[in-house]
C-alpha cells in the first residue's frame, strides 16, 4: 500500500487527502449528540393542542424521559414514591408553549397532582423551592401546579421553604386526562409574560432549567394521603428549550466556502498548467 502511495502522482492527492481528513477530524467532534438531558419544543404552525392531551399533534414533538426520585432532600421525606419515570413532550407556536407530561399511576385519585418548576430570571435557584444557598445568591422559582380535583393549573412562586404561594397573575392553563393506568397532563402558557420577576420567560433558542414533581393522590388504609406536600416524586434540574425558527445562514456560508474553494482550485490548476507549458 505504501509503495502505491509513494508513486509520483498519487502523492499530491494524498497530501490533499491529509488536509481533508484533518478537516474531518475537527468537524467531527461537533456532531456528537450529548446524553438526553433536555426537553425540546419544536415550533409548529397552527393551534397548539392545549386542551387535548391525546391530540395527534403531540406525536410531532420529540419524547424526553426523566427518572424520578422520592423526595429525600428535605424534611418530611418519603422513601418510596409511585411515579418512577416521567415522559415529556413540548411544542410552541412562537406565542405559546405547551408541555405534555405522561406517567404511569395505577389509580385515578382526586389528589393526583403534577408540577413543572422553572428558574426565574438570571439567578440560579435551588430545585427544592429555590431554598437559600450558603455561598450563592439564589433566585425564585416559578411552579406550574395541576391537581386532578380541580383539573386546572395554579401559577405559583417560591423562594425558600414555606414561601410557596399562588401568584396574583394566573397565566398557566392545565388539563389532565386519565386512561389505562396513566396520566397525560397538558400545561400551557404564553412564552413570555408581563411579570418577569415571578414567571419564567421562554425565549426560543435559549436553554432554561426545568424540574418536575408528581404526587400520587392515593390514600392509605387509614385514609391518609401517602404523598402530599413535600412527600412526592421529584427530579432535579434538567434543561428545556423552545427551538428557534429554522436558520439557514449556515448553508449560505457553506455554499460561499465551497465557491471559494472551487475558485481557488481553478486558479491554482490554471496557474500550474501555464507554468508547465512555458
Amino acid at each position: 500500500m505504501i509503495r502505491v502511495m509513494q508513486g509520483r502522482s498519487a502523492t499530491g492527492g494524498v497530501v490533499l487527502a491529509c488536509a481533508a481528513s484533518a478537516f474531518l477530524l475537527t468537524g467531527a467532534t461537533q456532531g456528537f449528540a450529548q446524553e438526553s438531558v433536555a426537553v425540546r419544543a419544536p415550533m409548529v404552525k397552527g393551534a397548539l393542542p392545549v386542551d387535548d392531551p391525546n391530540a395527534a399533534a403531540w406525536n410531532s414533538a420529540p419524547l424526553s424521559q426523566f427518572p424520578m426520585s422520592p423526595q429525600v432532600h428535605w424534611q418530611n421525606r418519603i422513601q418510596e414514591a409511585t411515579v418512577k419515570d416521567l415522559k415529556i413532550r413540548a411544542l410552541h407556536d412562537g406565542a405559546q408553549v405547551a408541555f405534555l407530561l405522561e406517567y404511569a399511576d395505577p389509580t385515578e385519585d382526586p389528589d393526583d397532582s403534577a408540577a413543572l418548576e422553572f428558574m426565574v430570571g438570571d439567578k440560579k435557584a435551588h430545585f427544592a423551592h429555590g431554598q437559600p444557598m450558603a455561598q450563592v445568591e439564589g433566585g425564585p422559582v416559578n411552579i406550574w401546579f395541576w391537581k386532578n380535583k380541580e383539573n386546572k393549573a395554579v401559577d405559583m412562586s417560591a423562594k425558600g421553604f414555606g414561601t410557596l404561594k399562588a401568584q396574583a397573575h394566573q397565566d398557566v392553563k392545565a388539563k389532565g386526562a386519565y386512561s389505562g393506568g396513566a396520566w397525560k397532563v397538558v400545561f400551557s402558557r404564553p412564552l413570555t409574560t408581563e411579570h418577569p420577576d415571578e414567571d419564567a420567560q421562554v425565549k426560543p433558542g435559549e436553554f432554561i432549567n426545568i424540574a418536575f414533581a408528581v404526587w400520587d393522590g392515593k390514600k392509605d388504609a387509614s385514609g391518609e394521603l401517602r404523598e402530599k406536600g413535600s412527600q412526592k416524586a421529584v427530579s432535579s434540574w434538567w434543561y428545556f428549550r423552545a427551538e428557534p425558527p429554522p436558520d439557514y445562514s449556515g448553508y449560505l456560508y457553506a455554499a460561499m466556502a465551497i465557491a471559494v474553494a472551487l475558485g481557488f482550485q481553478f486558479v491554482l490548476i490554471r496557474k500550474l498548467k501555464k507554468g508547465q507549458s512555458t
Partner: peptide, 15 residues
C-alpha cells in the same frame, strides 16, 4: 476538497 471546506464552514458557523 470543496465539499469538506463547505462542511467544515457549516459545522463551525451553525448555532
Amino acid at each position: 476538497f470543496p465539499l469538506l471546506v463547505g462542511w467544515q464552514t457549516y459545522s463551525s458557523t451553525a448555532p
